[in-house]
Design a protein around this nucleic acid. Structure first.
Lengths: 205, 205
DNA sequence: ACCTGAACACCGTTCAAGT
DNA sequence: ACCTGAACACCGTTCAAGT
């Protein structure tokens, strides 16, 4: 065991920032955002709470990294529509899917985006022309907001079955949310197709 | 001073739920959502923290009541456009204005709406036809999300002047946000006008 | 009807010190 | 480089008891 031994004596296992973000994402899925505390996270990693602050500067920065993980697959891929409207709709659905893939995903991403701590994947994918920015804004805020609402409804239904409200009016139990989601996204797409470049809108008081 | 004296001896001033909500809204404007605690609120009212729980069941219920106050003026008024697209745009601008009128207004309203604890004024104003619901969803989520982002940007700029980013690309310093906002809202309006009733949208993987 | 006092079970974050 | 130990300054909420 020379000082340069490539296999030094096994020391206590140490963590990397990636490990911490991994653990945070799994804890999020396990207990939800309200119960995702730095102390619980440290517990799961077998570490003191203060140790986390060697890896991340704050809880907000950690949640931004978690958001980055959630959003990573929201990109344009070969074979995707080349026109702005088509690409925007594709990205919108992909974003929706990713947010639903993790408990409270929309809420986590919503605040990270608002704080400017996570890059917006739709903006990144569509480029930074003026028209693209407007479209990315509309799609991103609509999808995140809709999914946030959707996820709260689901967890409320799951916890207490406090009267399924007026869900009788819906024909299909599972298809309803997705249909409403797709319809409004189509609305935005129709707006993109119609307004092309110049958008005129009357300012209502 | 009979037992039925209409002007009984002045007792210690007591609070109503309205007083508590008023104080919460003023405290929100003063210190922002992260520092709006039940203890601070109780302090301002000259009361023990536990006393608040006689008036409200939880902090979330209190914030929902605050949201209700913020959103109260978001209604259709005589003289407003009668068509769905025009009414939706008018309500969108009115909602935007109300959210900006209070510190962290968009964040407070965003979670109250997601939790279903505050009624959505755009949905209420547009009625509950299938088309109206889709439009109300698009407008509400877009406006709340955009304004949430906008308010975080503003308070970040205000606190630390940590590099105004790429704001040089914008011609007018103050008009920029509003222009982007109106453009995307116009996009949605154009979608409403175009899709009329039947919306066809291709589901991108 | 409205509130106090005291407690329960927690938080995020900092920082000197250890290895 | 990575973590411990201990503390600081807080939280939301409950509940018996007071007036």
């Amino acid at each position: 065991m020379s000082p340069r031994d490539p296999n030094p004596p096994t020391r206590a296992p140490r963590r990397t920032k990636d490990d911490v973000v991994d653990a945070a994402l799994r804890l999020l899925d396990g207990v939800g955002l309200p119960d995702l505390s730095m102390r619980r996270l440290a517990d799961g990693l077998g570490v003191q709470p203060s140790a986390l602050y060697w890896h991340v500067a704050s809880k907000q920065e950690l949640l931004a990294a978690v958001s980055g993980r959630i959003l990573a697959p929201v990109v344009l891929r070969p074979g995707d529509p080349a026109d702005l409207a088509g690409a925007a709709v594709t990205l919108g659905h992909r974003l929706h899917d990713r947010l639903l893939a993790h408990r409270d995903g929309a809420e986590v991403v919503s605040s990270s985006l608002a704080l400017g701590l996570a890059p917006s994947p739709v903006h990144d994918a569509l480029g930074d022309s003026a028209a693209a920015r407007v479209i990315a804004d509309a799609v991103t805020h609509y999808v995140v907001g809709f999914t946030f609402h959707e996820q709260q409804r689901r967890s409320a239904d799951a916890w207490g079955a406090a009267a399924p409200a007026v869900s009788l009016t819906a024909a299909s139990v599972e298809g309803t949310d997705d249909d409403g989601f797709a319809a409004a996204l189509g609305l935005i797409a129709a707006g993109i197709a119609r307004s092309a470049d110049g958008v005129a809108v009357a300012r209502g008081a």
